[in-house]
Design a protein around this nucleic acid. Sequence first.
DNA 1: TAATAGATTTAGATTTATTCTAACTTTTAC
DNA 2: GTAAAAGTTAGAATAAATCTAAATCTATTA
Lengths: 121, 121
Amino acid sequence: MTKQRELILQILTHSDRHLTADEVFFLAKLQMPSIAMATVYNNLNAMTDAGMINRVHVDGSADCFEKDTDPHDHLRCTTCGKLANVSLPWLKDRLHQAVGTDISGYDLTVHYICPECRKKI
Amino acid sequence: MTKQRELILQILTHSDRHLTADEVFFLAKLQMPSIAMATVYNNLNAMTDAGMINRVHVDGSADCFEKDTDPHDHLRCTTCGKLANVSLPWLKDRLHQAVGTDISGYDLTVHYICPECRKKI
DNA sequence: TAATAGATTTAGATTTATTCTAACTTTTAC
DNA sequence: GTAAAAGTTAGAATAAATCTAAATCTATTA
């Protein structure tokens, strides 16, 4: 647990939204100007592998990272692109039944219009 | 419908698997050596937008394309990476119920070990 | 405390997938 | 048959992520 890793973990912990590696890098640089992009990626990858943080693949743009490692899925606003978490505890079993073979997991993003964007229409 | 677009569509129609833009380019070049990568991407994007073909986002590697435009989801082998189609007609309604708000769609990839890879273990 | 091995970080180059640009070619419309 | 529009081409550009090699930090042993 180096200073760099600690800083990156702090940033994710205190963010109220999902952050890209680029955003983490920008925020980290404010507090530690010498930090390198490769360090951010190294640590995000290492912490993801260790199960300390969660990587979210976003179609057509950069991956995002979040502190929340409880199993959950994502809603993505088709207007502003923002991600929200949603818990679908029934889904994995239901998929296992439907597919008929053992599944190790799945990746789901549901497309919707978030409450803020819905207001603006 | 240019010659190039027709060729690309033929390639997708006659392929038994999901193809990346790169693979389409390679196969197209065999029959039309002058074809450019940009043309492949232009046409894949245009045909995707027109609903003639389907783009599949694959975590950590290049997008794939397929002729099948019936709504369906994907299984991805965690060992060899190959994609298979699966139909889950109940899922969209079930997600709509669970999320509680209108959803325009979703993206799902289920991780499993395909029959061929399973044999080799 | 000094030497050293191992891990980590840094800066920058590299890779990969994709898009952009500008010149050229083909097609279409008059 | 010519002009405008659309499409293609080659290569440059971009963005996300990884790799490399040198530098630095950390912990351990002497």
